[in-house]
Amino acid sequence: MSWTGRFLSFARDERVILVSIGLATFGLVSTMITALTMIRDDNEIPPAEPKTQYITQDTEDSLQLDTLEKLLDHPNFSIKEIAVKILCDRAANDPEVITYIWFGITRPDYEERMDSLRTLAVLTSQTGNEGLARLHDEKAYSALVRCMELCMQSTELPVVTDIHWDEYYLRDMGERFCLMFLTELINKYGATMLVKAKFVEKWLAKQAWGNTPEERRRNFKDYMDYRNNRITDIVNRIKHSRRGLRALEKAGLIDKESSRRRIRELPDLLMEVEEEIAAGEQSGEQQSRRTREHSAEEQRLRRQHREAMVLNDGTRPLGREDIIERDASPA
Rank of each mutant, 00 (worst) to 15 (best):
R113V: 00
E60G: 09
D162W: 01
E130Y: 14
H164G: 07
D222N: 15
L170W: 13
E14F: 09
N129S: 10
T34W: 12
G131Q: 01
D66I: 12
A92G: 04
Q53D: 01
D137L: 00
H305R: 12
L123C: 10
V235C: 08
L179W: 00
D66N: 15
R289K: 09
G131D: 07
A279F: 06
Y226Q: 11
R15L: 06
N76F: 15
E325W: 03
A92I: 02
N211A: 04
K196S: 13
R261K: 07
D73E: 08
E265G: 03
E275N: 10
Y54S: 15
A140L: 08
I101L: 08
T119M: 06
P317H: 08
R246Q: 13
Q299F: 00
M193N: 00
R320F: 15
K202L: 09
T155P: 01
L123K: 00
V97I: 09
H74K: 06
F181E: 01
R243P: 00
E257I: 11
R217S: 04
I234F: 05
Q53V: 11
A133V: 14
L157Q: 06
T67V: 14
K188W: 01
K80N: 06
S20T: 11
Q57T: 14
E293G: 08
V84I: 07
A247G: 00
G280I: 04
M1G: 14
E44W: 13
F177Q: 00
D13F: 07
A91Q: 08
W165S: 07
T52E: 14
A251V: 04
R290S: 06
L248A: 11
G280V: 03
E297G: 02
K198G: 04
D268W: 07
A247W: 00
V160T: 09
N312Y: 02
F181D: 00
N187K: 09
R316G: 07
P46A: 10
G244C: 01
S154I: 07
V97T: 08
T127L: 11
E14N: 05
G22E: 13
L311E: 13
I231M: 05
D109K: 12
I324T: 13
G190D: 10
T34D: 09
C178H: 00
E69N: 13
S78N: 06
R146E: 05
A328D: 11
R306Y: 03
R261H: 12
Q304G: 05
S9G: 14
R40F: 13
L87R: 04
E275D: 15
G22N: 09
T315F: 01
V19A: 12
V145A: 01
Y100A: 07
